[in-house]
Nucleic acid binder design. Structure first.
Length: 376
RNA sequence: GGGGAGAUACCAGAGCGGUCAAAUGGGGCAGACUGUAAAUCUGUUGGCGAAGCCUUCGGAGGUUCGAAUCCUCCUCUCCCCA
């Protein structure tokens, strides 16, 4: 893949760019819907491109390896052939599962042994193994295997973990360079900056990652419970060190406000389960603020879900009806909410891009951050 | 007409002399969720409040230091036999 910087904002560090992959182009800044098991939960694949306007989606190495397994994905001809999304994809490496499944895994120098959340069987993930799996899954962008540290995290642990992540990165790069995509198109490898919330560790990590010359660089280990200001501070610090001619990806972020603030710091790519998971749980993000559609106050609100929303569901369904669907436990509720939230997220980053291109990003961003964080 | 069972908080339904403002479900109300072990999880659901106090278990009386729990009558439901 190739990242091209198109325009840099003057009043902030925001940028607009284009990522070219063999599965198509991605206009940045971009939000990437999370499709852990090869499916963005509750959303049809064709709707991701038509209604949501998604340009790239995620898959997860750990989950796809466990189910359906590499044989099936290989037989299908890669993940995009398997799920029908013939556009760019990115696979997370399982590094987040080192964090989220910390109770059922063992971490060593060599790698991590996970105990499957599905059947309890044990599986060893080494950096080399993860590269092989990600090659087989076939996403355009592969993430390096890292340890996502928790918050809070004491300095010693963060420092040692960081060094381990760097050693793993070198092993990932070696294996990555020894192998190739089994399906004939190009795959890229993104390294990941760690260092918890410590400035010196983040600097050390960003400098280490920067000199690897990867097509894009990720910042991980944030949005794991630390205060927002701390997250922004770390992101800003990393953006100042990571090369400006390469894509920057802030992993796992975040709320609409988080995304806008991070775009202003120079981030190009985002992913987060929030629009889908929170959507399934009744949280609706709109340009006017956040709605908990399960709340009693919406029971007789027959106005559109989001009068200015970009998706057909926004004006087709009313708030009262959507609340009814949630109250009744109807599957259609989470489907509508997921579609709406994703379309809103993609609209938001698309607008951010437009504002960067026409030079009005900063003032628009300040105004928008307030609105999207409002509780309606 | 005869015999039997029962009436408990929004609903269903435990409790059968004190540790009961009353289990458990459901429903209601609210909250959480940030590289997805999540269509999940948590709190709350008589009234005010910090402890605590006040009014509750069909209705009216009674027994007892103490009753949702025991007794009497009343009202109402359901079942069986004629």
């Amino acid at each position: 893949m190739k990242f091209t910087l198109e325009k840099k904002d003057t009043a902030s560090s925001a940028r607009a760019g284009t990522i070219k992959t063999d599965h198509g182009e991605i206009k940045t800044p971009i939000f990437m819907p999370v499709g852990t098991v090869g499916s963005v939960k509750a959303v049809h694949i064709p709707h991701l491109s038509s209604d949501v306007q998604a340009q790239i989606i995620l898959g997860n190495t750990y989950h796809l390896y466990l189910r359906p397994g590499l044989d099936i994905i290989k037989q299908a001809g890669g993940i995009q052939k398997f799920n029908g999304w013939n556009r760019p994809m990115l696979t997370d490496s399982g590094g987040y599962q080192v964090y989220s499944l910390s109770g059922t895994r063992k971490l060593k120098e060599e790698g991590v042994t996970f105990q499957s959340h599905i059947d309890g069987s044990r599986h060893e993930f080494t950096p080399e193994r993860v590269m092989d799996i990600e090659r087989t899954i076939g996403a355009d962008i592969m993430m390096a295997f890292d340890e996502c540290t928790p918050y809070p995290c004491d300095y010693e642990y963060a420092k040692n973990s960081l060094d381990l992540t760097h050693r793993w990165l070198d092993r990932c790069i070696t294996r990555f360079e020894e192998t190739e995509c089994p399906y004939g198109y190009e795959q890229s490898l993104f390294p990941i900056v760690q260092g918890s919330t410590y400035r010196d560790l983040r600097i050390k990590s960003a400098e280490y990652i920067a000199q690897k010359g990867a097509d894009g660089n990720a910042i991980g280990g944030l949005s794991v419970g630390e205060p927002h200001e701390m997250m922004y501070e770390m992101a800003e610090l990393c953006c100042g060190i990571l090369p400006s001619d390469k894509a920057r990806y802030l992993m796992g972020v975040g709320t609409p406000a988080n995304i806008l603030e991070s775009i202003a710091l120079g981030i190009d790519m985002f992913d987060c389960v929030m629009p889908t998971r929170n959507g399934r749980n009744g949280m609706i993000f709109t340009s006017e603020g956040i709605i908990n559609i399960k709340n009693n106050k919406w029971k007789d609100d027959f106005s559109p879900i989001d009068p200015n929303g970009p998706s057909f569901v926004d004006s087709f369904y009313t708030r009262a009806y959507l609340r009814h669907l949630f109250a009744a436990g109807e599957i259609l509720g989470p489907m509508i909410a997921s579609l709406h939230n994703l379309a809103f997220y993609l609209w938001l980053v698309g607008e951010a891009r437009n504002k960067i291109l026409d030079g009005t990003f900063s003032s628009w961003k300040d105004q928008m951050v307030k609105k999207v964080a409002t509780r309606l």
